[in-house]
């Protein structure tokens, strides 16, 4: 007869495993919480008004606080004086570039996904394409930066240099003014980010389409619908919620990328917002990268504040994605 019965052993083993799982989960959450806390503490100086800060941490009165958020941080341009510095140009730049990226990457990516999933024959050629797209999704984004630099910023030197461009379209003051090569302008940034997110959009859209039961396609075809009618009227509407969720997550990826734009050589200090598609711009992650690299402590605090803003934006993006998934997704069979 052993000291511990078999049953007790089993229960102990079970508990030990549970404890291990709990430990790893809580460790992850703890690290994340610490990170967020330290960023919030560091960033609070420039994010919140002095009266709000002194009411919470000092001797001020909570009831007398009239202004909580220090809006100057959001509405000022970058500056070499930390107290005057803000992220206005970076926020606007991020929005512009994200919208351009979405307008380019979503139609292309979703179109590719529909073709590959609904129309393309399953042969060695499409298997090769599939394999490549999957690999491209794992390529580090800085590599796309180099491609963007060659293909969009300089356009292989075919159209002269950035300063001395060979071709331009539209009046200088129109928002759609474009010149070739794109230089460090919005279009170059948007196109480069498009390269980064395109594989992600394609893969997530394909998965969304694949999740539509084939019995629905068969039903549609059997009633005399063409493959195109089946894709546009049955498969795509059924897959749209999942496609949108994937698209939003891809956009939040684009929003957070600094590396490819760093390679393009976009400026960090900009005293105006972009006027046209060729105008210079900067983005939030790049502004953060720049501030964090400076020696003075105040700039580190600025970087932390900008990180908080970026995180809020990304949480909003993901929140919309989760909402869409929950609300729009209907059962399909």
């Amino acid at each position: 007869m052993s000291g511990i019965s078999l049953r007790t052993k089993r229960i102990l083993k079970n508990r030990a495993f549970l404890a291990l799982c709990l430990f790893s989960t809580s460790a992850t959450i703890l690290i994340l919480a610490l990170l967020l806390m330290s960023i919030m503490v560091q960033g609070s100086h420039f994010l919140f008004s002095s009266e709000a800060l002194s009411a919470v941490f000092g001797h001020g009165e909570l009831s007398q606080v009239t202004k909580i958020i220090r809006w100057e941080f959001l509405s000022n341009f970058a500056s070499r004086f930390p107290e005057k510095a803000g992220i206005y140009a970076a926020v606007i730049g991020s929005l512009w570039v994200c919208v351009i990226c979405a307008l380019l990457a979503l139609p292309l990516g979703i179109g590719t996904a529909i073709y590959l999933e609904e129309f393309a024959p399953k042969n060695r050629w499409t298997a090769l394409i599939d394999f490549n797209i999957r690999n491209l999704a794992g390529v580090p984004s800085i590599v796309y930066g180099i491609l963007g630099l060659t293909a969009f910023t300089r356009m292989f030197g075919l159209f002269g240099s950035d300063k001395n461009s060979a071709l331009s379209f539209g009046p200088d003051n129109a928002w759609w003014h474009i010149q070739l090569p794109f230089g460090q302008g919005l279009l170059a940034g948007g196109l480069t980010l498009m390269l980064v997110v395109l594989p992600i959009v394609i893969i997530s859209s394909r998965e969304a389409l694949r999740a539509v039961p084939s019995s629905l396609r068969q039903a549609s075809l059997a009633i005399g619908a063409t493959p195109w009618q089946t894709a546009s009227k049955i498969t795509l509407p059924a897959a749209i919620p999942s496609i949108l969720t994937g698209a939003i997550l891809a956009m939040s990826r684009a929003m957070g990328e600094a590396a490819p734009l760093l390679v393009l050589g976009i400026p960090v200090f900009i005293a105006n917002t972009p006027d046209n598609l060729n105008d210079n711009f900067t983005v939030l992650p790049f502004q953060i990268f720049n501030w964090a690299g400076r020696p003075q402590e105040s700039f580190h605090q600025l970087a932390a504040s900008a990180i908080v803003v970026l995180l809020v934006v990304l949480v909003c993006f993901n929140g919309v994605a989760v909402y869409l998934r929950q609300k729009l997704r209907k059962p399909l069979a």
């Binding site: 068969q218 039903a219 009633i223 005399g224």
Partner: peptide
């Protein structure tokens, strides 16, 4: 052809 020859499947498959 498929307009003239309708089909009903093993598992009911109404559109969502």
């Amino acid at each position: 052809l498929r307009r003239r020859v309708g089909m009903v499947f093993q598992k009911p498959n109404p559109f969502p």
